[in-house]
Simulated scan of single mutants.
Amino acid sequence: PGLIPLKEIYHFEDFLTHERDWHSAVTQGRELLHVYRHAGEEVIVWYKEKPRTTVTTRRGMGLYYCYLTFSKRKDAYYHE
């Protein structure tokens, strides 16, 4: 929990959809990000009210580390 800072959600989605061939989907409920690729591959980032953090799957964590490594946004490395 808390790996992906709230301020990076939209940049992370932009990275996945424009550079990694993922497609955006409509978010539902507490979802902050919902992207998919091929049959059955999807990444969802949820918002937990307590303690106000983001939560994602292992695939989401792996893709976020890919984002940190290959993104042109150097300030993405620094969390608040």
Rank of each mutant, 00 (worst) to 15 (best):
Y77M: 08
H38C: 09
V43L: 13
P1D: 07
H34L: 05
T17E: 09
K72C: 06
E8C: 09
K74G: 00
T54K: 04
T53V: 12
L33E: 02
P51S: 01
T53G: 00
W22E: 07
H11K: 15
E80Q: 08
E13I: 11
R30M: 05
K7C: 05
S71H: 09
F15W: 15
W22H: 05
M61Y: 01
K74S: 14
P1V: 07
L68W: 11
H79D: 10
P5D: 05
P5T: 06
V43A: 06
P1S: 11
M61I: 11
Y47K: 13
L33Y: 03
K72F: 11
D21I: 04
T53W: 01
G40P: 10
I44C: 03
I4R: 01
Y78V: 14
F12G: 03
Y67W: 10
C66L: 15
E41N: 15
I4Q: 02
Y36Q: 11
I4N: 00
H23W: 09
S71Q: 04
S71Y: 08
G60K: 06
R52E: 09
R37I: 08
W46C: 02
Y64F: 15
I4K: 07
E80C: 01
Y77K: 10
F15T: 09
L33D: 03
T56R: 02
E8G: 02
R20D: 07
H79C: 06
K72P: 00
Y10V: 03
K48H: 12
D75C: 05
S71F: 09
R73F: 12
F12D: 02
Y36I: 11
H34A: 06
G40C: 06
E80D: 13
R37T: 08
E8A: 10
L68T: 11
C66M: 13
K48M: 13
